[in-house]
Amino acid sequence: MSRSERQKMQEGDWYCCLDGELSALRHQARLAVHHHNQHPPDPGESLSPSLAALFAGHGQNCLIEAPFHCAYGINITLGHQVYLNAGCTILDTAPVRIGDRSMLGPNVQIYCAQHHKDKALRAKGLEIAHPVTLGSDVWIGGGAIILPGVSIGDGAIVGAGAVVTRDVEAGVTVVGNPARALPR
């Protein structure tokens, strides 16, 4: 029995992103994101109903400012009191976990997909997905980019505009492109 492209994606194998089932899931996410981005602010609400229903899981008192974008949503898990400022994008082709009390500045981008380096295979939609994990109490500065497969430890800080290409240890501050640790 052959595996579906969705199963390959979830298992961390090469898959075709042009697949019908994956397209339908992305469409479902676009609808939820559209509702979120058009939803009137409510001071008593922590997460819009459309995103709460879409995400794999979320804790209490999470807030995602509009506009927001995600690829699937079904691979995103938020801890308690997570804050995403306006313009954040999460391309969640693999699990994205954001720990308690973590904060993302405006226009932060998290990418899980890596497209094939062979141009013929890339043209056929072949890609592979790697999870991204942010620990608790992480602060990601505005405009930072987190690349596929990166883990950021508890209490770490990523400076504005940094491009994080590899794991960041707990309590470390990284800046630049590619991101490098500042002396402690």
Results as ranks from 00 to 15, higher is better:
M9G: 00
Q10W: 08
E11A: 13
D13T: 01
C16I: 10
C16R: 12
C17V: 12
L18K: 13
G20T: 14
G20N: 10
E21G: 03
E21Y: 09
L22D: 00
H27Y: 09
H27Q: 14
H27S: 12
Q28R: 15
A29M: 05
R30A: 10
R30L: 11
L31N: 05
L31K: 15
H35A: 14
H35I: 10
H36N: 00
N37C: 02
Q38M: 14
H39A: 13
H39P: 03
P40Y: 07
P41D: 11
P43N: 05
S46C: 13
S46F: 10
L47I: 06
S48T: 15
P49W: 08
L51S: 02
L51G: 03
A52I: 01
A52D: 09
L54A: 07
F55H: 02
A56I: 03
A56Q: 13
H58S: 11
H58R: 13
G59I: 07
N61M: 09
L63R: 15
E65F: 13
C70I: 11
C70V: 09
A71S: 15
Y72S: 00
N75A: 05
I76K: 06
T77S: 15
H80M: 01
V82D: 01
V82R: 04
Y83A: 01
A86T: 12
A86V: 10
G87W: 08
C88D: 01
C88M: 11
C88E: 00
T89H: 15
I90H: 05
L91G: 01
D92R: 06
D92A: 06
A94T: 00
P95C: 04
V96T: 05
R97E: 12
G99H: 06
D100E: 09
D100N: 14
S102I: 03
M103G: 07
L104S: 05
G105I: 00
G105V: 00
P106I: 03
P106S: 08
P106E: 03
P106G: 04
V108L: 00
Q109T: 14
I110D: 00
Y111T: 01
Y111A: 01
A113D: 08
H115E: 05
H116E: 14
K117Q: 14
A120G: 02
L121C: 07
K124Q: 15
L126N: 03
H130R: 13
H130C: 10
H130V: 02
